[in-house]
Design a protein around this nucleic acid. Structure first.
Lengths: 361, 361
DNA sequence: CAAATTATGGGTAACGTTACCCATCACCTG
DNA sequence: CAGGTGATGGGTAACGTTACCCATAATTTG
């Protein structure tokens, strides 16, 4: 190995000899453990400051805590996750804990590798955002390390769950479109290779709520779902596919803002206007949705609150709580200019279908 | 501590006794070290597979490598960073290395804490994206751990540098606006609390190139810079401030797409149209810029390439390279519909052509 | 005032892995 | 065939920290 290691790292032993006390004493001070006199604390703290000592997290990992929380995100591109991270870091700010992120990717395999990496690095707690793994795997992880699962709905006794009421959120979106007078309402959902029970995955819940509400309003025949991905590219492809239907849909409910952005692009490229010809609703109410020239109607869920809560629950677990907690946030509709009543029956579309140019890359 | 640790972790000793060899032998096999016969390799591999052994990264950290690369990002909200991460992960995909991320935040203090956290966790290499720290600090880090600094321009003998030619990029942007006939061109830059030499920070380089090009075209008197942040909010505030000038600017060059998005919002809110009244140029060419109803002219820099290169350089350093490498990518202008000639004092060019940027009303 | 209790500090053995070195053994040389 | 040379496998001591336990001093109790 080539690490031209500079001056040797300051260790607990250096601090101990400098302060003329034992390493045990130093360890107790830095951990705020029981059995240290104020004088001792003072003395050791001074030595620590003087030498610029920092505990070696990797060494701690062998014996005690690492003061590290691992956050597994499917992908960092989705700005909604930034809200979650902000919340988590806010919660951790006044503690000794550090958050590290790892990208889980789009498949169970890559996700597993990522979470294993977290476990191998001996993090004290794990937050998994929208994991694909089956419940058994989640519980296996949770038995090794305190875990919060964010975005899944199943009930477990070994991990805590934080989620949005996706059922209600999707219902708000579809109802909003129906109330505006739409009937040809289509949906873009997310494809995954998960083996989890569909009822526990947020995208399944959203898409099933879509179908349910449609049926409840006598629109069973209008149900059409494109199964692509909660990404721009996925939304773009899904919308292109759905816009070829006849009659052409007048409203698209995308399961995530990212997908809605792609859908907007597809609508525009098809020569149709939003919301003149097609209304679009997203989910997550990311900041981008509020930009005036996107102005996307979306379902708001409080990502920062979810992040803060995840952090809090993890700290509680680390401190010893063993009972499982479920925390649910309530979504709300934020109406913007991407939704409007459908065009009147006798309307003339610009020729649809033709210009399938380049996807936004 | 409450970790209800499940079954004890499989260790190298378990593998050794199961395969009836020494722990040393197992260690050699998993590290691909010299001195193992094919038979031995076979035998140990079988035992590893059978027991589902995974090396304990935290324990490895005490002796050898952790096979971990740490990526420090100022903030994950900027989608440009996702490109960098994609590149880095692509480069690492076929190796044993894992990437972990850490958010550095907006100040030197938080950044320092983040990078220290990486060092304490004994990562084998660090990529720092747009760090605020002074060069001395970067070199201090690099002496402890192989380091790539991404986005800064200074020359160092202890770390590798990967960056975009920001000078050229900014020049492309400003020239483009000048060529279109603009004179009242303003700039939005990023504020930081760095103590680095201004000439080494990418936002300084961009803003100085803006001023230089303006001067070279006899537009010294038109120079106006808002110093906010490379964020949506920053771009919004900066644009509001700049739009109050008299005469009103006809073009805004934002130092980053994120800021440009905010600027677009501000322009719209001021009742002005893009590009009818005001042209806007961004930097980074993030995917969002390509969305039809944003359609932002931007300077493209290949983030994935920068990420891949960072990974490669780090692996080389870990393998023993000690000389310093500098890698520069060349930016290019991607013209979209957010830029057009300035409105003419008295003429009937009446928003010719592209009215596209009108928000869906 | 002796005995019991509490408060405080330190010694030591791990934790799981790897670097370094040594012991063996088979195979070449000349 | 003695001595040398690789190739292969294993023993052992760290790495920096903390949990557990014990020793001592200080205080309270009966």
């Amino acid at each position: 190995m080539a690490t031209g290691d500079g001056p040797r790292r300051v260790t607990i032993a250096d601090v101990a000899s400098h302060a003329k006390v034992s390493t045990t004493a130093v360890s107790k001070v830095i951990r705020n453990a029981y059995g240290v006199s104020p004088a001792m604390r003072e003395r050791v703290s001074a030595a620590i400051a003087e030498l610029g000592y920092r505990p070696h997290a990797a060494a701690r990992a062998m014996r005690g805590r690492t003061y590290t929380i691992g956050l597994m995100l499917p992908h960092i591109r989705n700005p909604f996750f930034a809200d979650i991270l902000d919340g988590l870091m806010e919660q951790l700010a006044d503690t000794d804990y550090q958050a590290i992120l790892i990208q889980g990717g789009a498949t169970r395999t890559t996700e597993r590798r990522a979470v294993d990496a977290l476990i191998d690095r001996q993090v004290d707690g794990i937050v998994m955002v929208g994991p694909l793994a089956p419940k058994t795997r989640l519980e296996e992880v949770a038995r090794q390390t305190p875990t919060v699962v964010l975005g899944r709905h199943e009930r477990s006794t070994v991990y805590d769950a934080v989620f949005d009421d996706d059922e209600t959120g999707a219902e708000l979106a579809v109802r909003h479109l129906i109330d505006l007078g739409h009937r040809h309402i289509v949906h873009i959902t997310h494809q995954d290779d998960s083996v989890a029970r569909p009822a526990d995955l947020l995208h399944k819940i959203r898409s099933e709520a879509y179908e349910r509400v449609m049926r409840e309003h006598g629109l069973a025949d209008e149900i059409a779902v494109a199964t692509t991905y909660y990404t721009e590219e996925g939304g773009y492809q899904g919308a292109l596919e759905l816009l070829e239907r006849s009659p052409c849909p007048t409203a698209i409910f995308a399961g995530a803002d990212q997908a809605a952005f792609g859908a907007l692009a597809a609508v525009h490229e098809s020569g149709l206007s939003v919301p003149g010809d097609v209304s679009v609703v997203g989910y997550d109410n990311t900041r981008l949705a509020a930009l005036p020239n996107i102005s996307l109607t979306s379902i708001d869920q409080d990502g920062a609150l979810m992040g803060r809560t995840s952090g809090r629950l993890l700290l509680e677990r680390i401190e010893g709580r063993t009972s499982a907690v479920r925390f649910s946030v309530t979504p709300g509709l934020v109406q913007r200019r991407s939704t409007a009543p459908p065009p009147h029956s006798a309307r003339a579309h610009a020729s649809s279908g033709m210009d399938t140019a380049n996807p936004p890359h």
